[in-house]
Design a protein around this nucleic acid. Sequence first.
DNA 1: ATGAAAGCGCTAACAC
DNA 2: GTGTTAGCGCTTTCAT
Lengths: 317, 317
Amino acid sequence: MTVSRVLRNRGDVSDATRLKVTEAAKRLGYVPNKIAGALASQRVNLVAVIIPSLSNMVFPEVLTSINEVLDETPLQPVFGVTNYQPEKEESVLFEMLSWRPSGVIIAGLEHTDAARAMMRNADVPIVEIMDLDGDPIDAIVGVSQRRAGREMAEAIIKAGYREIGFMGTNMPLDHRARKRFEGFSEALADAGIEISDQEFYSGGSALVKGREMTEAILKRSPDLDFLYYSNDMIGAGGLLYCLANGIDVPGQVGLAGFNGVELLNGLPKQLATMDAERHKIGRAAAEIIAARSRGEDAPQRVELTPKLQFGDTLIRS
Amino acid sequence: MTVSRVLRNRGDVSDATRLKVTEAAKRLGYVPNKIAGALASQRVNLVAVIIPSLSNMVFPEVLTSINEVLDETPLQPVFGVTNYQPEKEESVLFEMLSWRPSGVIIAGLEHTDAARAMMRNADVPIVEIMDLDGDPIDAIVGVSQRRAGREMAEAIIKAGYREIGFMGTNMPLDHRARKRFEGFSEALADAGIEISDQEFYSGGSALVKGREMTEAILKRSPDLDFLYYSNDMIGAGGLLYCLANGIDVPGQVGLAGFNGVELLNGLPKQLATMDAERHKIGRAAAEIIAARSRGEDAPQRVELTPKLQFGDTLIRS
DNA sequence: ATGAAAGCGCTAACAC
DNA sequence: GTGTTAGCGCTTTCAT
């Protein structure tokens, strides 16, 4: 009836009745039932956002920018966390799609067959984010992780380092870290170099692990002249270890991480890194969903290019 | 009809038909419409989780533990972010309540009147988290921020420090930081001490801000013998500044932060801090919602007590 | 063990 | 400018 019109600012309603209705609504503390509304209108203003982890720091930042963009639209983000488990991703996705959201933003390109099928059948915009190396279901925005790895390797070689150690997470399901590593190794191989030593960790405080791994790898392989870390947090740990132990950085040992986290700016020396552009990724993804839900069209592919920041730990050649 | 029964594992259905249905469902990539289901059953497995910020590090951790607990139930968390703005909180709450969630977990005790009214009328379990100093709407779990501030002040005084500087965020709407500061000042006042100097910041990288503020305050007030930071990130920045500038910690200047963030373990020295128990808070809150949604009863108030960690920057007296 | 029918609280389309 | 009506896709209840 008229009430519905008022509450949604639709159609022609006289000011008098409009006033009466809004007033009554406020007085009764009325909160509309979107469930019924959504069922009737077949429209839901929710956007499903699915990420692997909240403890990674990177993802909260992506969420923040998604939030920023959607704040200016009628859309509402709804987050789900998969803990890097494909089956969990599948179930979270199932759960979310069953609410018929206006769009899906999901990290990565690797999904179970069932998950992929669900998304293809869902008939809503799907944006896969972060990674670019693979076949998207629908839209995609991110950086080529493989290329990021390559470029870092090339810069390291160019700077004259030859005995290179790698440290990273021991998570077979972190496909982005894996692809960076692959790109990195490939580029080294192209230059006839092999990784001299490596060290993996899982769980625990990344900063502490970075210290520990760095100590271990340098004790085991004292000839190393460069350490590449798969993320900035362990890189920062390594940097702090080197500084505390009088190791000359970048003279004796060069260091680099990945992500460009804000934290690095506060350290005594700037760790070399590559900005993963996660704010831009979040914005672009949200903008695609917003545009599509307005019926406008939007890019199918947004490629961002991570920029190498030399900082103070990688000799600029 | 029967299909519905199968899909929900309810009632008596013959194995034959059950099989037929599940198979067809899988083949068609069927995803049930929870909107219709929720409307019919008047039950929704969503739990609204409302927090001020994602960049604060503290909140992702709370979310993580909420997630952990709800993972073992049919409930699904749904996050909303308020950016510390009461009106935004109100609108997020409105939006979420309009989906008739099974419960609400919301940070803090300060809300607009309208928000408070909505929650009171919502007829679902409401758990206010983090803070304990105020009147809860329904259930509450957290630590007394005021007391946390007091205890830190008392420890500092006991350790013999007298010229105390304070650094914190310039956010009038961060009520928890404010209450800690109030408790801190009160305890100092009880001992006849006043804060000698203070410095506030907003925005930017907390670690960098910590360095900068520490430099500024020490240049301005060289007599300070203790610096209390309203959070660990700026405290860590301050610590790094002191170490880099040959300031003897905790001999010449003592330092303390708040939160007990994991990051601190990786620093060259352990910053004194108080663990805000955010994992326990998340767990307890989620458990209350889970219990209540099962019809069991649950505690109305869970008081956690932050533990002082002296680390290496506060003389143990 | 299965089917049929009512209705959850809205929106959309169409009268008046 | 306002009221009426028929669903939206399920669950629930009641028959069979």
